[in-house]
Design a binder for these strands. Structure first.
Length: 368
DNA sequence: TAACCGTGGGA
DNA sequence: TTCCCAAGGTT
């Protein structure tokens, strides 16, 4: 690459580093994962923070570390207990990958989280951002940790107008960070970029007037901070109509189903549900009844509709009619991924939020 | 590359 | 209500 094309050409790097780091030392938030340099704990926090707000993560992080204080505790835990600790956080493959990865650390790296880019990047669920974050924060390695904050902040400071929605754009910012990063304190430098993005250089109406690096910001100099970063929009989500069934026996036990190992809401428990293709309510309840019999062998009798739930995911939307049913006859043995469960015991298994809403319906509509 | 993979908060 | 978003990774 031609040296003249570098986004950091003629940029006051030392001044920028000093202003950013001084600001960070005096203004950073006290967060639970900042009280430790244990690479395992840093790692857990970074996985939880993926696409998730700090305020949401804090209670999950504290509970997770209480349950699994050290890497070996997570490695040896029952997957269902691990998933229960993640219930409600979303993107559930994150935690299954994390447990897979900590087991790998014990088997391949003698229980020590690897301190090289190649080593840590080979772990399940550790991409370029998380690799750089753990290496820099836990080990002080001067690697870039480019997340959405860093792309927003640097797009403004360096006036970079590449579309940050495009995957290859991240490399542009990694290159810039390699030029800018403090080799004396890579941990604080990377965290400071993200902290600045979270507190000052926010997506809308950035607080430029109190920004510690206002002097070094090319976008502010040109009054263009509102135009950056450039980010193309996503397409609208698809809508799927569903029927879910709350079926119970004389003892009040409910039929539940464990979702497949891969895909949406993998391995979480749910009330049996199918896509609703038929037009009429009667035909839809028949579809649901047939599905449950085919999959589990249970014969049920649907009594009526007890609720309607809408649930929006990142890429689709469920519209769910919830039906109440009595179990008329059970097979000699239910399949492995089907179970009968008392209402109280729903607290022991992990359900997606959409189905937690149904549990609430059960408690309000059926138990009363 | 673009689609898939959750959830809750704020404008 | 609707939209965008929040410390991404995998396929």
């Amino acid at each position: 690459m031609n040296h003249q094309e570098l986004h950091t050409t003629n940029f006051p790097i030392l001044e920028f580093q000093q202003n950013l780091l001084t600001w960070y030392k005096e203004n950073h938030r006290k967060l639970p994962w900042r009280e430790s340099r244990d690479p395992y704990r840093i790692w857990v926090s970074e996985i939880m923070l993926q696409q998730t707000r700090v305020d949401t993560v804090i209670p999950y992080y504290n509970n997770f570390i209480e349950k699994f204080p050290e890497l070996k505790d997570l490695a040896e835990a029952e997957p269902e207990q691990v998933m229960k600790a993640w219930e409600g956080l979303g993107y559930y493959s994150r935690v299954m990958n994390l447990q897979t990865a900590v087991k790998e650390v014990r088997e391949r790296f003698d229980g020590i989280v690897p301190r090289t880019p190649e080593g840590i990047s080979s772990l399940k669920g550790v991409g370029p951002y998380t690799a750089g974050a753990v290496l820099s924060i836990a080990y002080g390695v001067p690697e870039p940790a480019v997340d959405g904050n860093v792309m927003r902040v640097l797009s403004r400071i360096l006036l970079i107008d590449e579309d940050i929605a495009k995957p290859k754009t991240r490399k542009t910012f990694e290159k810039a960070v390699r030029e800018l990063i403090s080799h004396e304190d890579p941990s604080s430098f990377n965290q400071a970029l993200m902290e600045l993005g979270a507190i000052i250089c926010t997506p809308r109406s950035p607080a430029c007037l109190v920004c510690p690096v206002q002097n070094e910001c090319r976008a502010f100099a040109e009054g263009r901070q509102q135009e950056l970063p450039v980010k193309t929009k996503k397409t609208k989500v698809k809508t799927v109509n569903m029927s879910a069934v709350i079926a119970y026996d004389e003892a009040g036990r409910l039929i539940i189903h464990k979702r497949p190992e891969t895909g949406l809401l993998a391995t979480l428990w749910e009330f049996p549900n199918v896509e609703a293709n038929a037009v009429s309510d009667t035909a839809r309840s028949n579809e649901a009844q047939a599905y449950i019999y085919e999959q589990s062998g249970a014969e049920i009798s649907i009594k009526g509709k007890i609720g309607y739930i809408e649930h929006v995911f990142s890429h689709l939307k469920w519209k769910i009619d919830v039906w109440e049913a009595e179990i008329k006859k059970l097979p000699d043995e239910l399949p492995e991924d089907w179970r009968l469960l008392s209402v109280e015991d729903t607290e022991k298994l992990a359900f997606p939020v959409s189905h937690q809403k149904m549990i609430k319906l059960v408690k309000e509509a059926i138990l009363l």
